[in-house]
């Protein structure tokens, strides 16, 4: 099945990349853009049913895709 893992920086973790993008948007005339956070999406294809892969996907999201010290993650289960 196809899954998506969304990895986001925790609130309060500095995101200088997002700040630079916000500043660029503000400079180009989008003065109403107040904040930008840059996050990651992993599109993954895994063999097996949701029940059979759930534990593995959660484990590798926590151990590799996200660093729990600075990031959180959310899994979206597809077809």
């Amino acid at each position: 099945m196809n899954i998506k893992v969304f990895v986001s920086l925790r609130e309060g973790v500095l995101d200088p990349q997002g700040q630079a993008i916000r500043e660029a948007l503000n400079r180009t005339g989008y003065s109403n853009v107040n904040d930008v956070r840059v996050n990651k999406v992993f599109e993954i294809s895994v063999s097996g049913s949701k029940d059979s892969i759930k534990a593995d996907v959660e484990k590798f999201s926590k151990e590799l895709l996200a660093n729990p010290i600075i990031e959180t993650f959310r899994i979206e289960w597809g077809e």
Partner: peptide, 17 residues
């Protein structure tokens, strides 16, 4: 070492990019 958990904390992008 921080990613492996041998040391606490994390190292992220420099503030000035």
């Amino acid at each position: 070492l921080t990613e492996s958990g041998l040391l606490p904390g994390a190292l992220i992008r420099n503030k000035g990019l």
